[in-house]
Design a protein around this nucleic acid. Structure first.
Lengths: 208, 208
DNA sequence: CCATTACTAGACCATCGATCCGGTCCGCGT
DNA sequence: ACGCGGACCGGATCGATGGTCTAGTAATGG
């Protein structure tokens, strides 16, 4: 028996594209974290074999690079109506928000951010700060380093429920009284905003 | 033939201890980076089987946690003769120096720093800042987040030789003029010190 | 009609983290 | 003097992973 109905319809499943791979990789990472992303599982979700992925992508690292840049793509570029400080603050806030929306991304920040989305935003930051009379690279690194560090630490400490670590510290209150007293949780947003304000204020002083 | 001379001398090789494992793990990580650390290779360097390691250690994660805390152990605690700003700056400088001495450590900072060495230094930081009338946790996180981010970014960008990325950017100068102009390399030490100064200055203002 | 290109898949490989099972050695109590 | 149990060790092995080899198929353009 071999007729039209038995034969598989062409493009019953849409073609596999880089975009679909990246989109699905981000979804998988969101659901199961970095450890949950394997080429096989990704392929399975795309209804294909793991080998097929390697036609579109050279290594798994590629997938991670693409997924990370996709996260940067979610960061809105501030409109031009702000002064440079507001623009920088907007960009850093958006940057942080995007990374926090995809906690896995914070743990793979130790790779060169050379994707188009990341570059476009870095370029914007350089331009904004240079335009304000600052040393572009230096100011840009100060700000973005601070954002990266803040996000990584927040994700790290929020991953396991704070109760465990607080209990751990309470048991050792004799050795670490200050830590045990304050615990490790706190208002991450406020801390971030405060520190960012310090940095911007310091830069303003230099620019003036 | 079986006599004393043929039989292996007891304690010809010293007993395997956690300390030896950690020391060797750090050495291996220094030489070959995070990807070079496998339980088999670590065991081989310790002249034992990989299984043996699992008697002293539950998982490979344990090894990484221990190795990372060993790095924190290299950070000297500032003496008591400074004002709080100098003490904080000393600690952060030492913190950064230790992490940079072991670049692999920067890439595994996304794990809870609950080892005794890390806790001791964090406790010191809390105490110092609280003593200055600051919100201890908030100030401590601001500073250490900044250090972490700075180190991670520096290690990331220094890993591949800058020439490649600069060439990459030069080819795309039309899209990223500011980036292409300045390149990505710069004086990491100066940038770090400047930003740290901004943070400390901002905190001083709040403390006064 | 054919050759090339885009794309897909199954079998397979080396390696990894981790475990099973079976040891060996030493100190301690009896 | 003895042997017994716990500390310590290792070969073989398991399941899973990233990645490759080989062998295709469907469509497209000449």
């Amino acid at each position: 028996m071999d007729n039209v109905w038995v034969r598989p319809r062409k493009d019953a499943k849409p073609r596999l594209t880089l975009d679909r791979i990246v989109t699905e990789a981000v979804a998988l990472l969101d659901e199961e974290g970095v450890a949950g992303l394997t080429m096989r599982r990704l392929a399975e979700r795309l209804d294909t074999g793991s080998t097929t992925l390697y036609w579109h992508v050279r290594t798994k690292e590629d997938v991670l690079d693409l997924a990370l840049d996709a996260v940067f793509g979610e960061v809105p570029l501030p409109g031009g109506h702000h002064d440079w400080q507001a623009a920088a603050r907007d960009l850093m806030d958006g940057w942080r928000a995007a990374l926090l929306r995809h906690p896995w991304s914070a743990t793979i920040l130790d790779r060169p951010l050379m994707g188009p989305n990341a570059l476009e935003r870095t370029e914007f930051l350089y331009r904004t700060l240079s335009g304000a009379g600052l040393d572009g690279p230096q100011a840009a690194y100060s700000l973005s380093n601070y954002v990266m560090g803040s996000v990584i630490m927040q994700v790290t400490w929020q991953r396991r429920d704070r109760l465990d670590t607080d209990a751990f510290l309470r048991e050792r209150a004799a050795s670490y009284p200050a830590l045990a007293e304050h615990g490790l949780g706190h208002d991450w947003d406020a801390t971030f905003a405060t520190g960012l304000g310090y940095l911007l204020r310091g830069m303003t002083h230099d620019a003036g």
